[in-house]
Design a protein around this nucleic acid. Structure first.
Lengths: 341, 341
DNA sequence: TTGAAAGCGGTACCAA
DNA sequence: TTGGTACCGCTTTCAA
């Protein structure tokens, strides 16, 4: 590390003690204006930057927040969460340490340990498994806020999306357009996300006296492929519904591709609804109706909670669920010719 | 911050001084095995974690690296870079502080300042403008490594992709398939990336006695739309080439959508080549031939350089350029029926 | 209005 | 083999 100027350096240059310099720079009431002015000028000239580590050491405070995620990008939405976490933290004077676990519990543990050792005041973790014991062990008394689809809602500090709500809204929207034959296309439920969508969907359908059809195909890693396969299978079996809700936008894109290959039009022949709001402008003539998940809001809430855990002794605002909301574009529409047959 | 156990705590529990405990935990040669054993056991029981901030303060060292990017995700590839930076840094014992500048120089400056103040040993910055003065001012003597398309190659520490090379490879690939009428579709050159692609393309075409056609449409923010417009324009003017290189995969997807709407087949009627390797599996029947950019390798190199700048007095391995490489799939092919007319 | 002393957690040096 | 002392940069307390 190159030598940066310290309070002592400036003290020598001004003929003051490092204490006086410290006070002057923090605008203490017991330093004369003239001195303050002189100190500030020199400090600016030499490019003085306070050493937060030393300050935190003495004050027993933290000025960083840790965040650990399975991966940035790569079919996750944590990049969206992070962008907001970064901004919100910076606005409150905190830096963010970020670690990518590459879906390995070992790396996850290592990141947590290192960050705790580097004095983060709190951690925001999107775990890669439902078992959280290794994380808690690694973090010790440092508070941890859990986010993401792997977390059980019982955790004391957790911020989750309520995907049951998506199911309710999906059914409401599609039945509102006259659909009664609606299918949900999902994949292997490797986390709660999928189960919640299925649950919300089923309940909303049953509430209306409709029978929920759910088709699980493939895995989270390649849902576009799964979307195509799902459509192929329904076409072969002659069980294509009038409206199809896909558990992800990737899946919806796959489904739409397959439908078009078979000469079916969306939404003329069949309505397709997605989830996550990623691919809104992919097709020239078709914009996906989908669910937007409030990831920035979740990031903001995580930072607020982290900071309150760091700065207050009795923190703990209650948990809240974040609800996806429907974004209506033009891949869904009234029941078409096929449906009325 | 909750109170974590310190060396002193363990000293009291074992009846030793904090100095002896420190040595025991670091396996110093002048501590008896029995004592070491006893100390380690207690330390594990109370969950002792060394305070890296305090250690760094005394040793005048750094155990974190900073990284500032315009945004994670959001049409950038910095998520790919980061994933590797995170892993490489963790393997070397460093944490990474990451900041998202949201393409604002003010936030960029703020992130740099805060990270320097929080004692990062070096910074990896993907600037949001070509003017780097505010960043250098904010970082002072802390070394900065620049990455991304806005950086001038003269910077002492910069890691860049050589997009001229993409141009050369594109022409080589397409002429190898028999194409002579090749167009490059780009957008407003808001950074060096585009200019380099154009330059490499033009030179390679001219080297073969072919005249380079370059069409600039739209801006970086919406290249899918630009791809569609570019195709429409060429169709209207009757200037559609036999092969089209698009400056980004988004653009290629837009172009392919437009071509298909007009009943043209890819690659039967026209070959389409992309850049960035994002959309490889979008179409059921078509996989995009494109360029893969070595972002993980770039991330690894950035960390290695950062660590050598932190740990060595006379560091500075030379800069190297990272070359995209061609990934041949099936959106390019031999000159088709149209081309032979 | 200013500064000397102490202490945050850790490590190096040297004496016991 | 162990521990006392000093110091890294900073802030608080209290005396000058």
């Amino acid at each position: 590390m190159p030598n940066r100027p310290t309070l002592k350096t400036i003290g020598q240059m001004t003929g003051l003690s490092h204490v006086a310099v410290s006070k002057a720079l923090r605008d203490a009431p017991d330093i004369s204006d003239a001195t303050k002015e002189r100190v500030r000028k020199i400090a600016a000239e030499v490019g003085y930057t306070p050493n937060m580590a030393a300050r935190n050491l003495y004050l027993q405070r933290a000025s960083t927040i840790g965040m650990v995620v399975p991966a940035m990008g790569d079919n996750t939405a944590y990049d969206l969460v992070f962008n907001e976490v970064s901004t919100a933290a910076a606005a409150l004077g905190y830096c963010v340490m970020l670690g990518s676990s590459h879906r390995s519990t070992d790396l996850e543990k290592r990141h947590c340990r290192m960050m705790v050792s580097n004095q983060v005041g709190a951690l925001i973790v999107a775990p890669c498994t439902s078992d959280l014991s290794h994380i808690k062990a690694a973090c010790g008394p440092t508070p941890v806020i859990f986010i993401g689809g792997k977390t059980a809602p019982e955790e004391p500090y957790s911020l989750l999306c309520d995907y049951r709500h998506s199911g309710a809204l999906a059914v409401e929207h599609l039945t509102g357009l006259g659909h009664r034959d609606i299918a949900l296309l999902t994949y292997e439920p490797e986390n709660l996300t999928i189960l919640q969508k299925e649950e919300g969907f089923s309940r909303a359908m049953e509430d209306r006296g409709l029978s929920p059809r759910i088709l699980r195909i493939g895995h989270a890693a390649n849902t576009m492929q799964a979307g195509m396969e799902g459509v192929e299978r329904m076409l072969n079996q002659g069980t294509l519904p009038t409206a199809l809700w896909c558990a992800s936008d990737y899946m919806a894109v796959g489904a739409i591709n397959a439908l078009r290959l078979h000469g079916l039009s969306v939404p003329g022949d069949i309505s397709v609804l997605g989830h996550d709001d990623i691919y809104c402008s992919l097709y020239p003539d078709l914009a996906l109706t989908t669910f937007h998940t409030p990831m920035p809001e979740l990031g903001k809430a995580a930072v607020d909670l982290a900071v309150s855990l760091i700065e207050q002794d009795h923190p703990a605002p209650p948990k809240q669920a974040f609800r996806p909301f429907l974004v209506v574009r033009n891949s869904t529409g009234p029941v078409g010719r096929r449906g009325r047959n």
